[in-house]
Structure formats: C-alpha cells, structure tokens
C-alpha cells in the first residue's frame, strides 16, 4: 500500500493541467466548426491534435508505459487497409452499383 501510495504521489506530481487541456480541446472544436468547415485537410489535422491531447494527457499515455502506446497504435495499419478496402468496395461504380470486384482486383 505504501508503495502504491508513493506511485500515486509520483503520478500526482507529474499530473498535467487538465483544465488547460480542456480549454485547448474546446478552442480547437470552435475553430473546426467556425473557420475550418471547408478545409478538409485542416479538419483532419485538428481532429488528430484533439486525439493526441486526449490520449496523451487524459488517458495518460504521455506518462504511462510505452507498451500501452504500442498497443494503441498497432491497429492503425490494419485500420488503413480496412478503410481503403471498404471505401473502394462500397463506392459507386459507373453503373451506380457497388464496385466490389474492383477492390478484389487490388489483392
């Protein structure tokens, strides 16, 4: 218990300013909905910034074992594959039907 308490104390000393992070998240969201609605690339970058802030500081990935970050990032290449495959497969073909055969030819 003593060791656990000391771990908590150590964690508390390294605790980020949660209110400041909330303020930044709110500001980014305001920028998204007011200034960046017609800029897709900016919207994606702003979303990624919000994800990094939440995962890094609210989920404490910034201070936790690197294993957790590795586990959290591991699915991303597979996510990219699934996104490409499904979006291509479900996109309308020339005749308006789904182009499932098109995605099959990718593999």
């Amino acid at each position: 218990m003593t060791e656990y308490t000391s771990q908590l104390t150590e964690h508390a000393q390294r605790k980020p300013n949660y209110l400041l992070i909330f303020g930044v998240l709110a500001a980014i969201t305001l920028i998204e909905v007011t200034l960046a609605t017609d800029k897709p690339l900016v919207l994606v970058l702003l979303s990624m910034a919000k994800i990094v802030l939440v995962a890094g500081y609210y989920m404490h990935l910034r201070f936790a074992s690197g294993w957790f970050t590795a586990i959290f990032l591991t699915p991303l290449p597979f996510v990219a594959l699934v996104m490409v495959a499904l979006v291509v497969a479900l996109a309308p073909g020339a005749d308006g039907s789904a182009s499932v055969n098109g995605v099959c030819s990718l593999f």
Partner: peptide, 22 residues
C-alpha cells in the same frame, strides 16, 4: 480491448464513408 475497439469502429466508419458516397 481498446485496440480491438479501434478495428470495430474502423469497419463501421469505412462502411459509412462508402455508403455516404452512394
């Protein structure tokens, strides 16, 4: 578990994007 959830939502999001186009 959360890593598996990423894959779960990735499938749903990709499906949404595909159908949204159609």
């Amino acid at each position: 578990f959360l890593a598996s959830e990423i894959m779960f939502f990735a499938g749903l999001i990709a499906t949404f994007l595909g159908y949204k186009q159609r």
